[in-house]
Design a protein around this nucleic acid. Structure first.
Lengths: 217, 217
DNA sequence: CTCCGTTAGATTGCATACATCTAACCCATG
DNA sequence: CATGGGTTAGATGTATGCAATCTAACGGAG
């Protein structure tokens, strides 16, 4: 996997996550190869990789489509994220350097500014940045790759629902609180806030529907 | 992906998990294609898929090798498994049918029998069966695929250490206790036991080394 | 004797050609 | 007019050829 295949992965992932290729849309190999200026081989490899990431779905002899997550799965995804990212926050509270925490603080603060002005695109970008940075602080590539596909799945939600104002304020507040918990070197606090943060997002994005699993924190 | 590619994936995965291809061993495309009786193309796809599953590691222009997980990553893997499979146990306690629980009970009972006679191969097989069955009860394909690669990583451990007798008894006891918690329809109990079960396995398999993250259950 | 540059062999990455499968269309028939 | 089957066009799966890159062995200089 090198230039051609790698670029294909990046461009396809970008277009899917940005919504340019809508959920359910068919992704023909020849068409993509044509658009990207390469042959079918690297396109095929890119599609398989994205399938492993959970962004596309491949059916034998029938080709690839952008995934459409049922609400039931998304519910589970938020529950899993709540637990794994809670673990990341715990690990970070123990092992992150002060400089790491400063960087996270910067992102959270900048995010708060954009949120106050309603610049949603920037908010989404910084939110993804915040979470991936924090997960990176866990110091384990396994954590990062495991959580990666789950985060992608939730990003695809962007085109479906949006945060209301109250949820947005909660989210901003959580981000800042986690930074505070990290500075206090308090693993339990950090984990608990991150857990609440993602359960809050779950409620806001999926709506007040009946949840698949009831939580008792 | 059809016959050729699919069979290649299955056979390679089997050989890696069984230890026939040792961690760190190089997996040349032409050699595998020759052994499997297909061309390089399906072999390449199989290797990419296994890379996504976390069983092999591919470096550009340098080929594929069986992964070698550092102890640090394995530590995180058990922590993540403890949380996700704890969630599976919780979900199962709420949604599993009585027949599902019966099936799990059968597996756990049979496993206990083999453990008493020290038939380790059967124990390993039924243990994997138990966990994948329980995770399947969560009713979410996302849970199953997310946890899949993590379980593979821990299976590779088999060649490194083994359970001592006390750890084996604990493990068997946990399996049976989880079934009891499911029958009682007690999500908190089920989740707590599964959490303990995997932290116990972590301690037994990784040894009493310094953990990357301290737990405060 | 050691170290480094060169070169030959082998291996991977990409492109293309062939085989097989899916699905849509058309036409014949009840 | 609806339905069923056969046919055909397009797309995916597989095999193979070619170019680029890496590995390792070899020989020469210090």
């Amino acid at each position: 996997m090198t230039a051609a295949s790698d670029r294909a992965v990046e461009r396809l992932r970008e277009r899917i996550l940005s919504g340019e290729y809508a959920p359910g849309e068919r992704l023909g190999e020849v068409e993509l190869a044509d658009k990207l200026g390469v042959s079918r081989t690297p396109v095929r490899e890119a599609l398989r990789l994205l399938a492993a990431e959970g962004l596309v779905e491949i059916t034998t002899n029938k080709g690839a489509r952008v995934v459409e997550y049922p609400a039931h799965d998304l519910d589970h995804i938020f529950l899993i994220r709540a637990r794994i990212e809670g673990l990341s926050a715990r690990t970070a509270a123990i092992h992150a350097s002060d400089a790491d925490i400063d960087k996270l603080d910067e992102i959270a603060t900048e995010l708060a500014g954009y949120a106050a002005h309603g610049e949603l695109d920037e908010v989404y970008r910084l939110n993804a940045d915040y979470h991936s940075t924090l997960n990176g602080l866990s110091g384990s590539a396994v954590v990062l790759s495991t959580i990666g596909s789950l985060i992608h799945a939730t990003v695809l939600l962007r085109t479906l629902h949006s945060f209301d104002e109250a949820a947005m304020r909660r989210s901003v507040s959580h981000h800042l609180e986690i930074v505070a918990a990290l500075r206090a070197r308090d693993p339990d606090w950090a984990e608990a806030v991150m857990h609440a943060h993602l359960l809050s997002a779950r409620a806001s994005l999926l709506g007040p529907r009946k949840h698949a699993v009831e939580e008792t924190p």
